[in-house]
Design a binder for these strands. Sequence first.
DNA 1: CAGTATCCCCCCAGATACTG
DNA 2: CAGTATCTGGGGGGATACTG
Lengths: 123, 123
Amino acid sequence: MQKKKYNISVEATLEVIGGKWKCVILCHLTHGKKRTSELKRLMPNITQKMLTQQLRELEEDGVINRIVYQQIPPKVEYELSEYGRSLEGILNALCDWGEKHITKVYGDTFSVLEENILNDHLK
Amino acid sequence: MQKKKYNISVEATLEVIGGKWKCVILCHLTHGKKRTSELKRLMPNITQKMLTQQLRELEEDGVINRIVYQQIPPKVEYELSEYGRSLEGILNALCDWGEKHITKVYGDTFSVLEENILNDHLK
DNA sequence: CAGTATCCCCCCAGATACTG
DNA sequence: CAGTATCTGGGGGGATACTG
């Protein structure tokens, strides 16, 4: 394995969770297993291609598990792996900071889509 | 101000610290004020253009301060703003996770450039 | 030293169609 | 439903030269 040089350790973290959609995907998975179609619904602006791509990379880096149910129609679920759960603290902190930031910038009014907040707090 | 819709709060965080180099810059600034040239030296792969661009955006979002010393030759320093310091916990967590990840992937051998580790721990 | 201004290439990611 | 394959365009970001 070729050794990669990092100038600062955070670069290694960003290589894993720095992709365009990776933090968002991981945040959703902190609330439990999700099917592909669920993830797609939770991220209306992601394309099928990007979703699959980002999921593959997260899987390669060992932070999520891909669970395939051998059935028709196909069913696939994704979940945080044990290793991925070591990111939960960070992911929650990122979400919390975002909420406070929204309040700071836009005031106290409701700025995150209700449906998804619901979804977030349900599982 | 146009209200932005987020599907999940982490998206708001990523708008602030999600830029290609922003986390790296912010991590360096957690160790104290830095001159432009210092930052450039700490990030050998960033271009002047990107450095300035990312710094401007961080400033606009209120997480860093730009300190201009009126003198010749010019001297400019950047530091975490008070608001930016609310990110310190996250930034440190990102660095810590990166260190552990490097160890996990490459083993215990030294993988982050010595000069910069030194630099990190000095200030 | 810190920062602009141009030019321009490359590739990321979107759109679309298709498979099992 | 989950995932591939292919084509394509726009813009992110590099290189370079220049200013105060």
